Computed example of a mutant assay.
Amino acid sequence: MASTVAQLFGFILGLLGFTGTVVATLLPHWRCSAYTGSNIITATSYMKGLWMECVWHSTGIYQCELYRSLLALPRDLQAARALMVLSCVTSVMASLAAVMGMKCTRFARGSLIKSPLALSGGVCFLCAGLLCLVTVSWTTHDVIMDFYDPFLPSGFKYEIGLAVYLGYAAAFLSLIGGMVLCWSSGGGGGSRSRSPLRVQRRPPLSPPPAFNNIYPPAPPYKPHEALKDNHAPSVCSMSSSGYRLNNYV
């Protein structure tokens, strides 16, 4: 019972991490314009995401434009796109495997593949969390390095956006959910529902007793005294009724 609750708790955390990863991937708030120097008071605010670039005006107008060319994007942005999409796909695979492998579902109930499926779901959640964590950490490093670059104009400096913080939260949720699933499915959440079958070996059967010990041997055949000489003479015999063959040759 405890392992079932732990599996359900880990799956819910992984599902929340997956939802946060998808939202962070789609939001354009990865980099927001920094208000430094002469840009302390501005009428517009710029935001850059993985798929689009948006401008917010003080009048309330919000305009976004998708990136037109994939090859024209910088390599770090292309890598961030690929890693976040891969993290979402891995989370989908983890959710499917965890649903089929949890003890509270009816899929393959009583089968030996039940626990390995839940364990593979936990491992996939761990991989998805690591991919998301690598992406947001990389973006954070680039934003900080550009912000403190003295040769970069203040108009080109950005701050860490809301999507990056959401990505951190989603990555940690996926990691915790994956660890809980692995722990509960690997035998740490309690005893297994069914113990492995033990094959009892029977001692080998004793060999059958010897035939001679059951039935005594038959006595040797001895013909009766009256029948010893009571037999017909053979045609091919060398003697017959006391006469020899050479007497007639």
Rank of each mutant, 00 (worst) to 15 (best):
G190P: 03
G49A: 09
V23N: 05
V235C: 06
V92Y: 08
S33L: 03
V99R: 04
L126H: 08
K228C: 11
S58Y: 06
E225I: 03
Y221W: 13
S174Y: 10
S58L: 07
S240K: 07
D149Y: 07
L227R: 09
G190L: 06
V235S: 11
H231E: 14
L26D: 02
G122H: 13
C64W: 02
F156I: 00
T44R: 13
R109W: 15
S58D: 11
I12L: 15
G242I: 03
N246K: 03
S91I: 07
F156E: 15
L13V: 06
L71T: 13
T42F: 02
R109V: 08
A6P: 03
S174M: 14
K48V: 11
S38E: 15
V199A: 10
S239F: 08
P116R: 14
F107W: 12
L162F: 01
L112P: 03
L227H: 05
E159M: 03
S95H: 08
G242T: 01
A226M: 11
A72K: 12
S120P: 00
T140I: 08
C182E: 01
P207I: 00
L162S: 01
S137H: 05
P209Q: 11
R201P: 00
P153N: 09
Q63A: 10
P204Q: 06
K157D: 08
D76T: 04
L205C: 00
K157A: 10
F172P: 06
T19E: 00
I144P: 00
R194S: 06
Y158P: 03
E65V: 14
M1C: 01
V85W: 04
S184A: 15
F125L: 03
G155L: 10
V22S: 04
N212F: 00
V5D: 04
Y62N: 09
M52H: 03
P150M: 07
G121V: 07
L119Q: 12
C104F: 15
A72W: 05
V92F: 12
L130G: 01
M102T: 05
N39D: 15
I144S: 04
F9C: 14
K157C: 06
S174V: 10
S174A: 14
I214N: 11
M47K: 02
